[in-house]
């Protein structure tokens, strides 16, 4: 399981470089993700290369979501295939995850959210 982690502004973009996320690689995925998302407030997981996700992969993604939410951060997904989306819809996870069609769309959502937060509240003392 290989993850490519990039920083785009304050957003950590994690590109999953595997064509499947299933029982065979979820343990590696969890371990790698746990390290990559530690302390991150804005995480985007790009699943463009992932053609198949099973229930184990779904569980691993949920685990990430819970970890980021627990730290007060936000997780978005992008680039999910039709097959993967059908699984998300089957188990109603499309309501739990914030899913975007493309990486740009997701980053724009993060930016817009950040602008809203800055308008509404004083700027944070430290940049993330």
């Amino acid at each position: 399981m290989k993850l490519r982690v990039e920083q785009s502004g304050n957003v950590t973009v994690i590109h999953v470089e595997s064509n499947h996320l299933d029982a065979g690689n979820t343990t590696q995925f969890r371990n790698a993700m746990s390290e990559a998302i530690a302390g991150r407030q804005a995480v985007l997981i790009d699943l463009t290369d992932v053609q198949f996700v099973d229930s184990s992969g779904l569980g691993a993604l949920l685990s990430c979501l819970r970890q980021i939410s627990a730290d007060g951060g936000r997780l978005r997904l992008c680039g999910i295939s039709r097959t993967v989306r059908s699984l998300f819809e089957l188990v109603r996870m499309h309501r739990v995850f914030e899913i975007h069609g493309s990486r740009e769309e997701a980053l724009a959502a993060f930016a817009s959210e950040r602008n809203d937060d800055e308008g509404a509240a004083p700027p944070p003392e430290e940049a993330p």
């Binding site: 569980g59 691993a60 685990s63 819970r66 699984l87 089957l90 188990v91 109603r92 996870m93």
Partner: peptide
């Protein structure tokens, strides 16, 4: 079917598909 559990979807998925 929310984010409270990370597992237990397998049999449900088989049944639904």
């Amino acid at each position: 079917l929310d984010s409270t559990r990370e597992g237990g979807f397998g049999l449900y998925i088989i049944d639904q598909t």
